[in-house]
């Protein structure tokens, strides 16, 4: 098995899905000749031509809007929004149309499209290039919201998203693009959407994370084991919406304690929904309130202060210790 970083793994998924289905198109700014600013669509235009890998004019609303039209016609466009911070210029197309066309047309049409966006901090970037906005999409009925945490699951989830008959927002953590290599099998691989994975098992506490925060949670679990002798479960959500509540609830029923970690601001974020789900399903098992380790509820802080804002291992460990001591 070749070892690939996340960029190469995503590129492999796109290549294989385009080879297997002539209806799959790639559309976005600089995705063709340039291969995307992060090179995720590298070489696709050379292989599939400029009609299938489209260097669009610079306009997010029309990228998504025209892709909706293509999808209504039966194609399966995969759009790239260059940075998630720019997606507010197409948010109306996503919320008003992508998410609703199946319902509006009562099943006569559906919108089988994927919107890929790099998100999150950790790359010393300017404003609009380092925020985390998954909560907006997770809140919209009709959409699915997926965030992989490494090369192998990124490849398998992107393939699943492309094959999904409903619109999928696919966030890619910029911090993970080149972070690590993983063995990724040559043959096509699919991970079902809507399922979380338990990536580490322990009886004392459940850490819940996704995207770039999964490795932070895993490192925190190592520290807790080494310094406190505490065994921690770590859950990688993979799909934010629809949320895999069963996996969360059954874990917290065993551990009685949960800490949620995300890069998005705290209030009304995914952590709130996760905490409410745990309350709904595992209230009688809780030994402590569900804690959230998140960015603070402030606008963009600049990368000189980013470390203080985005959750890191020490903040997660501290929250875990508080929870264990409650």
């Amino acid at each position: 098995m070749p070892k690939l970083n996340m960029v190469k793994a995503l590129n492999l998924a796109l290549f294989q899905e385009m080879e297997r289905d002539g209806d799959v198109l790639v559309l976005g700014e600089d995705v063709g000749v340039d291969g995307g600013v992060f090179r995720v669509t590298d070489d696709l235009q050379r292989k599939f031509g400029s009609q299938r890998v489209i260097d669009s004019p610079l306009a997010e609303a029309a990228i998504i809007g025209t892709a909706v039209g293509m999808a209504l016609y039966g194609l399966k466009p995969v759009c790239e929004i260059q940075f998630s911070g720019f997606a507010f210029q197409c948010f109306h197309q996503i919320e008003n149309h992508c998410a609703r066309y199946r319902a509006r047309s009562q099943g006569r049409f559906h919108v089988p499209m994927v919107i890929r966006m790099p998100y999150g901090g950790g790359v010393r970037a300017l404003e609009h290039h380092s925020e985390s906005e998954e909560q907006f999409y997770a809140h919209i009925p009709g959409l699915k919201m997926v965030i992989p945490s490494g090369p192998r699951n990124a490849r398998a989830l992107l393939a699943a998203a492309i094959r999904d008959p409903d619109p999928v927002i696919f966030f890619e953590a910029k911090a993970l693009y080149h972070a690590a290599k993983e063995e990724v099998p040559d043959e096509s691989e699919i991970l079902p959407l809507g399922r979380a994975q338990v990536v580490r098992e322990g009886k004392a506490l459940t850490l819940i994370a996704y995207g770039a925060m999964v490795r932070v949670a895993l490192e925190a679990a190592e520290v807790l084991q080494a310094e406190d002798g505490v065994e921690t479960t770590v859950i990688d959500l993979l799909t934010i919406a629809p949320l895999d509540r069963d996996t969360l609830v059954s874990s917290v029923k065993q551990t009685g304690r949960a800490v949620v970690v995300h890069e998005a601001p705290r209030s009304f974020g995914p952590g709130a929904e996760i905490a409410a789900s745990i309350m709904d399903g595992a209230f009688l098992s809780l030994e402590a309130p569900v804690r959230r380790v998140t960015a603070y509820d402030v606008p963009f802080v600049g990368f000189a202060r980013e470390k203080a804002n985005v959750p890191d291992v020490s903040r997660v460990v501290a929250a875990a210790r508080d929870t264990l001591a409650f």
Binding site: G65, V68, G69, M70, L72, Q93
Partner: peptide, 10 residues
């Protein structure tokens, strides 16, 4: 209007 353009492209 972008939907119309997308339909036409498709």
């Amino acid at each position: 209007l972008p939907h119309a353009v997308g339909l036409a492209y498709a």
